[in-house]
Design a protein around this nucleic acid. Structure first.
Lengths: 112, 112
DNA sequence: TTCCTATATAGCGATATAGCTATTTATCGA
DNA sequence: TCGATAAATAGCTATATCGCTATATAGGAA
């Protein structure tokens, strides 16, 4: 049971879109900040030191991509990570980075 | 045991780089093609219909990122996926896409 | 060496998007 | 209704990078 080329292309395009969403340091910083718990825009601005406009814009991108949920609270907007998938993905990547770092250290040891 | 801000930034930058490498449909297509087994550049060109120059360029990007290994075979260059990490990552993302698709279908059913 | 084929790379136009400043929109309290 | 504050957005410049064409490099065979 193999899928049609078109479906494959759609799957690839969607996967690329997901990876692209996660390809910006600023957005990863926002996700990391929100992984500790839901926060309002101003709290995020205070926690990260990023400009309010950029924070709003990138939160919008992450929400559009389905990684965050937005909830109005009076004058504020509170954002939360909406999908454990994000955590899984980030953990996998971070583990990989650590593994590679350890491998590099081991290689250096071998070279001495 | 929390890491220094600088280390965190480095980790985020590295993660963003990994995601960015996977954010291009062409590169995902190449990875997908190579997941079936190692191939030379000309075989990849034949299998995908992409231009030789682009294939070389993007294989270079993937190799630089550590996702592929290159092996000279006389006049040819054979590439292979070098890290099961790539498969894991792609599987995770594809699963997510399928889950979301099913969820959308279910939502549609509910709306009828 | 000289030719031929497989890869790699240079240079270019087009496109996408990050972050900036400034402004607009939305919601609450007086 | 009228500020005041939180958030979203508009418009901009700068930058990165895709795929393209054309060319350079590398390695084998004659």
């Amino acid at each position: 049971m193999s899928s049609s080329p078109a479906l494959n292309e759609a799957l690839i395009a969607e996967a690329a879109r997901i990876f692209a969403t996660l390809s910006e340091p600023t957005r990863l910083r926002l996700l990391k900040t929100l992984m500790a718990g839901p926060l309002t825009v101003s709290e995020i601005v205070a926690a990260t030191g990023l400009k309010q406009g950029n924070v709003s814009k990138q939160l919008g991108v992450l929400t559009q991509a389905g990684f965050l949920e937005r909830e109005r609270e009076g004058n504020f907007a509170r954002f939360r990570v909406s999908d454990p998938f994000v955590q899984e993905l980030c953990r996998l990547v971070c583990d990989k980075i650590e593994r590679d770092a350890h491998a590099r250290v081991a290689a250096l040891r071998g070279e001495i």
